[in-house]
Amino acid sequence: MQTNWRLFKVYLLAGTFTFSGGMAMLPVIERELCQKSQLISKDDLYEYTTLAQTFPGVIALTNACFVGKKINGTSGMLVAGLGAILPAFVLMSAATMLYQQLPQTGVILSVLTGIRAASAGLLFSAAYTLARYNLRDFWSIFLALACFGLTLFNLLSAPTLIIIAAVVGLLVNWSQRKEFH
């Protein structure tokens, strides 16, 4: 019970002070769970982090569930997961309710126009950063460009493209393996 309460508190804290994406939670989790309470080893935490990235779903939540499950079984998994998403849900629904109350006219519309432009700028920057880490060979660049064009001209939907890309990734890797042997 005490362990569960501690897990919940740590994830609630990490979830409250993590901006733009869940991965930024990690340093807080490491400090609280690995160093202070020594509930899980650093190696385990990072292995779960890598593992969480290979599965579909919310990476930060999957990671929290793995850690919670390891430390305290199914109940640990549930409290850690709840702690990881509760702040985002509460703060975001409050923010969205406020946003819905905003009259979209006059000076407020102008403020929102500026914010929307900033939002587009941040997306360009995110795309560029992702490109730098993920586009390393001919095939990945080709896939990225194809998805860009097909989405821009509205020819194929994102879910279809993601499935095709997974298959292409498999085939390319498979053919490269055959060349080695």
Binding site: Q53, T54, T113, R116, A117, S119, A120, L123, F124, A126, A127, L130, A131, N134, L135, W139, S140, I141, L143, A144, L145, A146, C147, F148, G149, T151, L152, A158, L161, I162, I164, A165, A166, V167, V168, G169, L170, V172, N173, W174
Partner: peptide, 28 residues
């Protein structure tokens, strides 16, 4: 197989995000 599929998906995600950013630019 898992990392191979993820490589493909991550490359696709780059293109998808870039396209969304471009579509936002066109709209705004």
């Amino acid at each position: 197989q898992v990392p191979a599929m993820l490589n493909g998906i991550k490359a696709a995600a780059v293109g998808l995000i870039m396209a969304i950013a471009a579509l936002l630019l066109l709209t705004l």
